[in-house]
């Protein structure tokens, strides 16, 4: 196991898959000569040339659709949308074409594209560059949505997504590209479905994904040291489909659940997990599940307001304590 940064893990996955299969290409704004905003494709343009590492015009719907069209003929594009906020412009191609083409062609065509995009709230990027869009993508049949919380998952999820015949949306986080973590030295394919227990515990389950896994892990430490509560942290790296079985297994053991999400509460991961708990294991619950979500405003630019709008580990701790009436 070597330690590497998140962006290095993303780059390594690109490099290995492109070296293996000449039909794997990368495309996006500034990913070639410039090496990518987050360095995720650094050096690949020199290695694989401009036809396979495509610097696109600023035409999100156009180039995402181009990748989708090419994938009909067996090309495997890894499309980078520079910021998930710009993915709104490509929704027509992602939802109407990629997610539906296999179905509406009666299984004749498929769109094996990988669409990666950094999202989430970084530092004071303002309302239009701080989007949390996973809830939008995970509600669409025909599209897989995964979201890595560490370099190992980032590497393994891209590797698996490139080999998968479904369109896969990978939701990354702008603050995590310089995060360090261990990645297996050999080739590693992370499952595209399921969940991971990031920390074992018996008293309460904390569900997180992407950045909120880290809030949950910090909260679990605080709960253990200061309150004698042993929290289990479940990493929901697959948002579509969600791991019903894993969610139910953990809560059947702990009987309590808190879901932490960076997004506004409505129609989100928290809402979906709560629905699953209702449907699958209502009578296992000792307390009503609680969501820890962002304030229902566009993300503020002002430093203090931004911090106040986005949850953190402390909010997760408080939510857990509320389950115990403390």
């Amino acid at each position: 196991m070597a330690e590497m940064m998140f962006w290095e893990a993303v780059r390594r996955a690109h490099d290995e898959e492109m070296a293996r299969d000449p039909l794997v290409i990368a495309m996006g704004e500034d990913i070639g000569v410039a090496g990518g905003t987050y360095k995720a494709t650094q050096g690949l343009w020199d290695k694989y040339g401009p036809e396979r590492v495509i610097d696109t015009p600023i035409s999100e719907n156009g180039f995402t659709g181009l990748g989708i069209g090419a994938s009909f003929l067996g090309v495997r594009p890894i499309i980078e949308i520079m910021s998930v906020n710009f993915a709104w412009l490509a929704m027509d191609q992602i939802f109407n074409t990629a997610a539906k083409v296999r179905y509406m062609s009666g299984g004749q065509l498929e769109a094996p594209v990988v669409i990666r995009s950094p999202g989430g709230c970084a530092h004071q990027l303002g309302a239009q560059h701080s989007a949390r869009m996973e809830k939008v993508f995970m509600g669409v049949a025909g599209l897989r949505v995964v979201t890595p919380s560490n370099p190992r998952q980032a590497y393994g999820l891209i590797k698996s997504a490139v080999r998968c015949n479904d369109p896969v949306f990978i939701n990354e986080h702008e603050l995590m590209y310089n995060m360090k973590g261990e990645v297996p030295d050999g080739e590693y394919f992370h499952p595209l479905e399921g969940s991971e227990v990031a920390r074992e515990g018996k008293d309460v389950t904390l569900f997180g994904y992407n950045v909120s896994v880290h809030w949950c892990l910090q909260a679990a430490e605080i709960l253990s040291k200061q309150h004698g509560i042993e929290a289990e942290v479940v990493d929901l790296y697959s948002l579509s489909p969600l791991d019903r079985k894993g969610i139910v297994e953990s809560v059947s053991k702990t009987h309590r659940a808190v879901i932490a999400e960076e997004a506004e509460p409505a129609v989100g991961v928290g809402a979906e997990v709560m629905a699953i708990l209702n449907e699958e294991c209502f009578f296992e619950l000792d307390a009503a599940p609680v969501r820890v979500s962002a304030a229902n405003v566009p993300v503020p630019y002002n430093h203090g307001l931004e911090k106040a709008a986005i949850p953190n580990a402390k909010d997760v701790v408080e939510a857990v304590l509320s389950l115990y009436g403390r």
Binding site: F63, L66, G69, A70, F72, V75, Q93, T97
Partner: peptide, 8 residues
């Protein structure tokens, strides 16, 4: 975009 991608 789809047609352009097939052409690509």
């Amino acid at each position: 975009p789809v047609a352009t991608g097939i052409a690509y």
